[in-house]
Design a protein around this nucleic acid. Structure first.
Lengths: 336, 336
DNA sequence: TTGTATGCGTTATCAG
DNA sequence: CTGATAACGCATACAA
């Protein structure tokens, strides 16, 4: 079938052990080295990574497990992870948990069985005990985007609370008082943090929060569409709204366009996460932009360090800053 | 370390061969079956897929190779492929070629060495000889989005030519004559096909094509931004423009917004590929929508059939239809 | 430094 | 139907 070390050994006139040593960078007589290289080229030999893995329990592969694949946030991150790890000779295996715990567990078991050397995961819930249990001490784990509260893992997240804080602060500074928020599902870490930022800044400025203006969605476009529709029926209306993730921003903008509500004259808007949006929406939308590439890169670097045996300051929580894109979707509000 | 068939055999009081047979669904004495199941549960045994692959050369894994990961089109497709193949017990391994031939070849070799059972690829170029050469007869291949012209592969594409044809036809019907097109890089199949559709419909309606209105971009947002800027300096201006992929549509809209050009009063616009856009842009953008889920699903089904030994009507070219989303970005044009 | 021999966890062959 | 055993391709302990 395919050419093996045995073939190379035969052609080179050495033993398979010598060939193996050559392949793994050990010392080999120059004379033998040449004969082996010659044989490898002549035969078109490529080492069989499966056999290697069986033998060594190392696969030079890391798993990336995310709730949903078809989502720009996940994919940008996955791409930057792949780019980074590629340099170190690692390849990645992507899995989707679809936001289901059972699926997350299953995939975790699956990749563990595949002998991946590390895993990067956006956990579906706020518990991580199953992760520890399944891949536990065997395999390094780096969480991204969300942390869990029952197990200590390395993690790379953004400063969601302050991201929301500063966004809403912009609105307050411009004179807004009736500021609505389209929040995310509270079982998700990022959603909780972002809502916390909203509450904190309102409180810091001594503003009362009208709970009728805090609508909790599920991070999907359709739901946000409905929530914004509902929101605009409040009397009096809010003068500004902060939407706390990408999909919901899409739904919100769509709804506002459909209702014919002028941005920012009738309503100031701050979206989340997607830069493209800023330019496509008219007027250019103010958005909180996450450093996606950096998230992926940092996570990959950290995981690589762990896989290489470096346990410095474990567990380390890397908290990255977001960037606020000004846009033109925020108006001055002259309070009465 | 981990528990093996040998352990199961020992505990169950049978031979490893019998355990293996049980695992593979062969006939086993009921009595033994029970003992084995008991032992498996007791020991928490899980079969080692690496060893299986080494032995059988089957990995129950398919590779998906795309030019760029961080792109909604790729990802939606990858997700639907994963969903579909998951049902059959296959998992997927995704790789990015970054639009580079050398990288495509390298990844192909890599997954071949990993013993994947099939590969789905969006080829970077219009030649596929390297694909045939590397994974050749060994492994079934299904192309998506683009076909190659020197090798016969199964493929799932959309009817790009007619997609463009019908889009531009809408403009013509509404009275437009000076219709511009932001085309894609002509070394890419889809870009060629879409431009062909434009030319064909113009010709079918007896309209001369002003080559100054046909601008060739590279499927990126930034370039399209510049091209549209250039386009709007033409004198006389076009009255309509057809933008032929997602990223370029983003750039085009961004540019038009910035220039303050009103859609559709000053310029009618048709975009490509992204449904979200339709609602977020004001007014709702007319777009050509690709059946992403279907593309992934069909490709996965076809590959599954091939992997199962079904060679019916090889090579089969599945050509899916796009959908035209009307929007409100097309105005009637009263010609002089 | 090199070769020999053994094992990684399965599957497949071949007697029984 | 079952058991013993030989691969699969590679890496490593050990002896030389």
């Amino acid at each position: 079938m395919s050419v093996t070390t045995k073939d190379v050994a035969r052609v080179a006139g050495v033993s398979v052990a010598t060939v193996s040593r050559y392949l793994n960078g050990h010392n080999v007589l120059d004379e033998n080295r040449e004969k082996i290289e010659q044989a490898i080229k002549q035969l078109g030999f490529r080492v069989n990574p499966i056999a290697q893995t069986l033998r060594t329990n190392r696969s030079m592969t890391v798993a990336v497990l995310v709730p949903t694949l078809a989502n720009i946030f996940s994919m940008s991150i996955i791409e930057s992870i792949e780019r980074c790890l590629d340099q170190y000779g690692y390849s990645i295996m992507v899995c989707g948990s679809r936001g289901e715990l059972a699926r997350e567990e299953e995939k975790l078991r699956f990749v563990r069985d595949k002998r991946v050397d590390g895993v990067i995961v956006i956990p579906v819930g706020s518990s991580g005990s199953h992760i520890a249990e399944i891949v536990g001490d065997d395999i390094p784990v780096v969480l991204i985007d969300r942390v869990v509260d029952d197990v200590r893992f390395d993690a790379v997240v953004v400063d969601n609370t302050n991201a929301a804080y500063h966004a809403v602060e912009q609105l307050i500074i411009k004179g807004h008082r009736r500021i609505a928020m389209i929040a995310g599902p509270q079982h998700i870490y990022t959603a909780r943090e972002r809502l916390k930022g909203y509450r904190r800044v309102m409180s810091d400025y001594g503003l009362a929060i009208d709970e009728d203006l805090v609508l909790v969605g599920d991070y999907t476009s359709d739901t946000a569409y409905g929530l914004v529709k509902e929101l605009m029926q409040r009397d009096p209306r809010p003068t500004a709204v902060f939407v706390s993730n990408y999909e919901m921003t899409i739904g919100a903008i769509g709804c506002l366009n459909e209702l014919g509500i002028r941005i920012p004259e009738e309503l100031s808007v701050i979206g989340f996460d997607h830069l493209d949006l800023s330019s496509v929406v008219k007027p250019p939308l103010a958005v909180v932009a996450q450093p996606r590439d950096e998230i992926g890169r940092k996570a990959a670097e950290l995981l690589y360090a762990r896989m290489s045996g470096d346990t410095t300051s474990f567990p380390s929580l890397i908290r990255l800053k977001t960037r606020f894109i000004q846009g033109s979707s925020i108006a001055e509000h002259k309070s009465g």
